[in-house]
């Protein structure tokens, strides 16, 4: 804080922090080749990237999706099928798989985002289950509940994590850059206007349906792409793993916890919560671990919604501006304006 003030807003280090962090993260595999930490960081990147994506819809436009894992799972399947049937490597198809997810997202958006009512919640809530059911029932293509095995990457066992590490890191960097770009564009301004007051946004000339559909399509690109990479990471995909509810739940909690509608909010949320949850799961007896994990996440979601709905960053900002230095400058000035003139 004090350092910041002394150096001034324009000091390059302030803007340089993210780049310094990126360089550091790029170097990690060279210094620390052990699987455990790379694994942990890779999953953190994956969740952070998807959360930033989720937040483009949930934070900027204010429409919370309960179905992002549906796109993640379909992304996994699409990548797996492209690899198994056409021999196309996942690291090349992943962005295209993401685009397929975006198209699907636009379709679902067309169904549910033209009106303002609860349709979006309904569609995203049920979509995951439909997608899972489809993958289960289309046995001839997807192998049903047996799932699909993906050919392994041709790499030594101790290095196999590295491409995924960089892949997910790249996805995270793209997510942050896209989110920043949107925040600074008219599109982003329009989305925030929709969140604040959709009717007013419409009366201001914002094409709200188009904006929302576009935002959702962009939002799910990250889930689809991450799903594709994740399928190759596991070398396997089945309906249970691909559509794990915990994934959607994580995205929501991370965004909320860090702060919705702020670029770095979901990133912060993911970097705090993923390592924490990975550690805590160890403490639970494995017999009930999955169930307890689920219930615990549900409790965390309810607690965050009740007690920290603005998230860490925004709460911190609010606490900073509430200090006496800034108190009532507007009121004082307001009275001048209203009585003179």
């Amino acid at each position: 804080m004090r350092l910041e003030r002394r150096l001034g807003q324009g000091w390059p280090l302030r803007r340089g922090w993210p780049w310094a962090g990126l360089v550091l993260l790029l170097l990690v595999p060279l210094v620390l080749p052990e699987g455990f930490y790379l694994d942990l960081l890779m999953f953190t990147f994956m969740y952070a990237a998807m959360s930033v994506g989720w937040d483009i819809m949930g934070g900027y436009a204010g429409y919370v999706s309960l179905g992002h894992v549906g796109f993640f799972g379909l992304g996994s399947y699409a990548a797996a099928l492209l690899l198994v049937h056409l021999g196309l490597p996942v690291f090349i198809t992943a962005p295209l798989v993401g685009l397929m997810a975006s198209l699907l997202g636009a379709g679902l958006g067309f169904i549910s985002l033209r009106t303002r009512g609860p349709a979006f919640v309904i569609v995203t809530l049920t979509f995951t289950y439909v997608a899972q059911l489809l993958m289960l029932d289309l046995k001839s293509v997807t192998g049903g509940s047996q799932g699909l095995f993906l050919p392994l990457l041709d790499l030594p066992a101790n290095l196999v994590i590295v491409p995924f590490y960089y892949g997910m890191l790249a996805l995270l960097v793209i997510a942050i850059l896209v989110s920043i770009a949107i925040r600074r564009s008219k599109f982003g301004l329009g989305l925030i206007a929709i969140r604040e007051d959709e009717g007013k946004a419409e009366a201001s000339g914002v094409n709200t349906s188009l904006y929302k559909i576009l935002a959702f399509a962009i939002s799910v690109w990250f889930a689809g792409t991450a799903g594709a990479l994740h399928a190759q990471y596991l070398n396997y995909v089945d309906p249970d793993l691909a559509f794990e509810l915990i994934i959607t739940l994580n995205l929501i909690i991370m965004s909320l916890f860090g702060s919705r509608g702020i670029v770095w909010g979901p990133v912060l949320g993911a970097f705090i919560l993923y390592p924490l949850s990975a550690y805590l799961v160890f403490l639970v007896p494995s017999r009930v671990a999955g169930q307890v994990h689920l219930a615990a996440l549900g409790i965390v979601l309810v607690l965050v919604v009740m007690f920290l709905p603005d998230g860490l960053i925004r709460s911190y900002q609010g606490w900073r501006t509430k200090r006496p230095k800034d108190a009532r400058p507007l009121e004082a000035r307001a009275s001048i304006v209203e009585t003179t003139g």
């Binding site: 600074r184 008219k186 301004l189 329009g190 604040e196 946004a201 201001s204 000339g205």
Partner: peptide, 26 residues
């Protein structure tokens, strides 16, 4: 738009022409 700045409130009604201008500077 209560949680947007006064200037941002002014920019929201600015008309955009096509998707390209949508993604230019706010």
């Amino acid at each position: 738009f209560k949680n947007m700045t006064v200037l941002e409130n002014m920019i929201v009604p600015v008309r955009q022409l096509g998707l390209r201008t949508l993604f230019t500077a706010g």
